[in-house]
Amino acid sequence: MSHTAHIPSHRKPRQRASKSALRAGVAGGVLSTIAVAGAAGPAQAEPVTQTIEMPTITAGLSTAVAASAQATQQVAFDLEAEAREDAAAESAAKKAKKAKAEAVRKAEAKKKAEAAAKAKAEAEAQERAERASRTAERTTLSAPSGSTASSSGNSAPASAPSAAPSAPSSSSNATGSAAAIVAFAQAQVGDAYVAGGTGPNAWDCSGLVQAAYRSVGIDLPRVSQAQSTAGTQVSLDALQPGDILYWGGAGSAYHVAIYVGGGQFVGAQNSSTGTVQRSMDYDRPSGAVRVL
């Protein structure tokens, strides 16, 4: 074999030796570095290690916790359902109470309406009876008016004795109308007094006087102040049936009535007495006017 052929085989061992030395040197250097660092560095305290024991959740405990949560949720559902039932019961009780109160109110209203209807029917029946009675009385009072005008005063109808003494002072022209006015006024005796009333069954003082004169075709002012100056002022000592009596001043009177003769008057006095026939001594008037 030639010298050249032995070169490769001669180099291979050397190459392996170099690699081995290199590897040995690297390893030795590392170990030397660690040894030097350990020798050169100060002694260090060993790290403190603390062991914490963690609770172990067993399968049984997990099941118990789940069951407890489920039971708590069920209790919450039950309480909520009970609360809803209580609220529904309270609402139903309120509605029932309201319905009962409404039924009682309607029953009372119906009862009152029936009582009012009954009272109205009775009042209407009584009013018709009173009207019939007044019509008969007016017919009786107005029938002898002509003879009263020409008589000495003793032939006045028995149903109106208070007007009998007044007839001699009447003239034939005024007596007929005066007698009708007196008859109208006396027919209203017993009617109620109502402020602003103009009949047919309730009057105030000037409303009665106005209606009495209107029955013979004479229109008077509505209020007592104007009626007290509607005619000629006359003395209380020279009164004739049908004259208007007033209380207060002429033009400022607060009350009026109709003189019916015999020292008496008919007037709608007040809510306590209603329409009455009274003596002038009961309440002396301030003055009088004559319209006829």
Rank of each mutant, 00 (worst) to 15 (best):
A40M: 12
S170I: 10
V256G: 03
K110Q: 15
D219H: 11
S177M: 14
A192G: 03
I218F: 00
V26K: 06
Q269L: 07
E46Y: 08
G287V: 00
A81P: 02
P144Y: 11
A109F: 10
D243C: 03
K118I: 02
R105M: 07
R278L: 15
A81G: 03
S68F: 12
Q15L: 13
D191S: 05
K111W: 00
Y259F: 00
G28C: 10
R131G: 01
A109V: 13
A257S: 13
A253Q: 02
A250N: 05
A179W: 05
A109H: 07
N173Q: 13
D243E: 10
A163Y: 13
V182A: 14
K100T: 07
A92Q: 12
S32Y: 05
S32W: 03
Y254W: 08
V216I: 06
A103D: 04
R134D: 08
A64G: 09
G28W: 13
S170L: 10
G28Q: 08
E82K: 07
P241D: 06
S215W: 08
T49K: 14
A40D: 02
T175H: 12
A257V: 13
D191E: 04
A40Y: 02
S20Q: 11
G41Q: 04
A212F: 02
V209T: 13
T135D: 04
G207H: 04
E127T: 14
D86C: 02
S224H: 06
M1K: 13
G261E: 05
A250G: 01
T135S: 13
V75T: 07
G190I: 10
E90S: 07
V75M: 06
G28D: 01
G196E: 10
A178K: 00
A109N: 09
A125F: 04
T72L: 06
Q210F: 04
V189A: 08
A167Y: 15
G207P: 10
T135Y: 11
L22M: 08
T4Y: 05
